[in-house]
Amino acid sequence: MSSDIAVVAFAQTHHTGEDSGLSEVELLAPVITDVKEQTGLTRFGFTCSGSLDYLAGAPFSFVSALDAVGAWPPISESHVEMDAAWALYEAWVRLRHGDIDTALVYGFGKSSQVRRADGESGLPELMTLQLDPYYLAPLGLDQVSMAALQARAYLELGHKEDDLRAVAARSRAAGRANPYALDLPDPGDDDYEIAPLRPHDCAPVTDGAAVIVLATGDKARELCERPAWIRGADHRIEAHSLGARDLARSESAALAGEKAGVRDVEVAELHAQFSHEELILREALGLGDDVRVNPSGGPLAANPVMATGLIRVGEAAGWIHRGEAGRTLAHASYGPCLQSNLVCMMEA
């Protein structure tokens, strides 16, 4: 049993808001090469990835991705049909067994390929394919409308739309300072996308990939000057039906945070795809005004679906790698309106 497990390397693509003409595996290969060079490793004790067939428009989207890894001789490998943050969780659990000392984790997604017949992004519709197939999916919902229901519930507690705009403005400004995120202008006077959400409250369509290397104990210290030690990792899901939960709060995020041992956070990277989600998550995780939230710009500045959550871990670890923070938090989410939430606490 090994419980000293750290993030020792992270790489991500320069994310794009449109199709850059690279296939998924071509997006992925350079970032995998990058972490191999950072660590000097070419083989890993375990490999795990997160991706989504429906994003690629074909079954088994993870099969060709294996070409980017160099899976020869054969490797010990698995895949989750979830954000790659859950692949990281699986790898973290695997490393705890104690018989291996490194793991490679990656995620990738090209949301730009999801295109309605009229040329608009079909991502909001696509994301509703994960809804209850009897009572919800046939309604013709979209992801933004679902999120707007939650935003309205949150505003009913007495919050203002300006609070949402402030989140978007801060995220976009931070994104412009982040070479990997999109260059998005300050929020303008756009009409509602779906009230109360405006376009700037919604994460942009993004293509990208990200890779993380985990290592245990001495191996981690050997590979990285300042490993980001994972002190707790947990994830929790709640009811699927929106009518069965208090939408203005995130019970599952609060529970995951408690189990992961959230305390004294200096920097938090939150998987908030809509601006109100950041505010709900801050409350659920008890993050006060002194915590720097999404200094990378977060998902509102770059949202390569299936890699977005993993990027939160990489970005939060980066503060420790650079010696700029002692305790950081990464969060990932999936399911409609933050149905499931993962929290990863890291320390220097």
Binding site: D53, V80, P133, H235, H240, L255
Partner: peptide
């Protein structure tokens, strides 16, 4: 593949049916 049933990541919808509320739930493929 989720294409079999046309429900993407159906474990989200199955959370209640499998008594997973308040617990960790993962999906392997």
């Amino acid at each position: 593949p989720d294409l079999f049933e046309g429900v993407m990541m159906p474990e989200a919808y199955l959370a209640d049916a499998l008594g997973a509320r308040g617990k960790p739930m993962m999906r392997v493929h």
